[in-house]
């Protein structure tokens, strides 16, 4: 019986079983869903704020993670594929290794845990909190006020048009 079992395992069926196991392990990585927890986040064409915004993603929206690159997530939101910054999903745990890329090829260096760990640290809100505690005389209240200043797109368009400027 034992000998029969090993004889079965020695056949190419074992290779198929091993591959099936790998695919099963890779499965959850493909379908990982993230919830956007900040309002009015933008989906960008490239993993950079300098690239063109493709779509606004509202708070609470579910996006499907495709891959991660440093502070950026490539996601699918309602059929639009683009890049979402980490700030939109601050609670998302970093993806360790993209198995699908490992199996089917493509660079995996961008998702190495060392890089993810470094990208997740640095000058963060926590460091700012420590700095503020050490320097209580700084005027962060007015800095917050300035960051709340904005111009509605329609108002900006009107301003540009009235001034004979380029849209």
């Amino acid at each position: 019986m034992k000998a029969g079992f090993w004889r079965f395992c020695g056949k190419p069926a074992l290779l198929a079983a091993a591959l099936a196991l790998l695919l099963l392990a890779a499965g959850p990585g493909w379908a990982r869903s993230l919830t956007v927890s900040r309002p009015n986040q933008q989906l960008y064409q490239e993993p950079s704020f300098a690239s063109s915004p493709l779509k606004t993603v509202p708070q609470g929206a579910k996006v499907t993670l495709i891959r991660q690159e440093g502070e950026w997530y490539k996601v699918d939101y309602q059929g639009t594929v683009g890049w979402l910054h980490r700030q939109a999903v601050p609670e998302a745990a970093p993806a360790k290794v993209d198995l699908s890329r490992l199996i089917f090829g493509g660079p995996v260096a961008e998702t190495k845990s060392e890089e993810v760990a470094l990208a997740g640290k640095g000058f963060t809100p926590e460091v700012e909190a420590g700095y503020r505690q050490k320097n209580p005389g700084l005027n962060y209240a007015q800095m917050d006020e300035i960051e709340s200043f904005g111009v509605a797109p329609a108002q900006l368009e009107k301003f540009i048009q009235e001034g004979g400027l380029n849209p």
Partner: peptide, 20 residues
């Protein structure tokens, strides 16, 4: 690794808070 956009932002906030 260069300084990220978010790190640039936090440094800028601190500089602004000092100016203010």
């Amino acid at each position: 690794r260069p300084i990220s956009d978010s790190e640039e932002y936090y440094v800028g906030r601190a500089v602004g808070a000092r100016i203010l």
